[in-house]
Amino acid sequence: MLSPHEFATLMLVRQAPEQIDMNRAELDALLERQLAMLEHCAAGARRAYLTEKGETFLDALHPSDTPRRSRKTAGNGGGESTETPSVQDGRTKEIVAPGRAG
């Protein structure tokens, strides 16, 4: 099981590997668990990247290639729908909540 700091570091490796401090203990834990690897770049620089195991771990929690769907919640702009439109017969159709006029 990963600590919250290790999990945050794993997400940072995916999103912004150039911002990671290479001396972080959390990065060492990810390397030991084979969730991340180090790439040696020019001039002795190192860059962290996710292994297939690390990608699978993060994808199980929140796939990066699947768009997030917005949910309508109280106070999100006066009750306006933020739902994804549906496509029917090749034409986009707005989803309207029952009892509301579009």
Rank of each mutant, 00 (worst) to 15 (best):
T82N: 09
A48V: 08
E39K: 12
E55Q: 08
N76E: 13
G75E: 06
S70D: 14
I95W: 06
Q19H: 08
E6D: 13
D28E: 07
C41H: 11
T73Y: 15
E80Y: 12
I20K: 06
A45M: 14
D28N: 03
R33H: 09
D89E: 15
G90I: 05
E39F: 05
A16M: 06
T84D: 11
A97M: 09
S86M: 15
P85R: 01
M37W: 00
F57A: 04
M1A: 07
L61P: 04
P85K: 03
G78W: 09
M37L: 15
D21F: 04
R100K: 10
A97K: 15
L12P: 00
A42S: 13
Q15T: 05
A74P: 00
E32L: 08
S3Q: 06
A60I: 08
P17V: 05
T92I: 12
D28V: 03
E39G: 00
L61C: 12
G79A: 13
L35C: 05
G78D: 09
D65P: 03
E39T: 11
Q19T: 13
R14D: 03
A42M: 05
C41T: 14
S86I: 15
A60S: 09
Q88K: 15
K53R: 13
E80C: 13
Q88P: 05
P85G: 02
R47T: 13
E94T: 07
M22F: 08
R24N: 11
V13D: 00
M22P: 01
A29G: 03
E6M: 03
D28K: 07
R68E: 10
G79C: 10
L38Y: 12
M37Q: 06
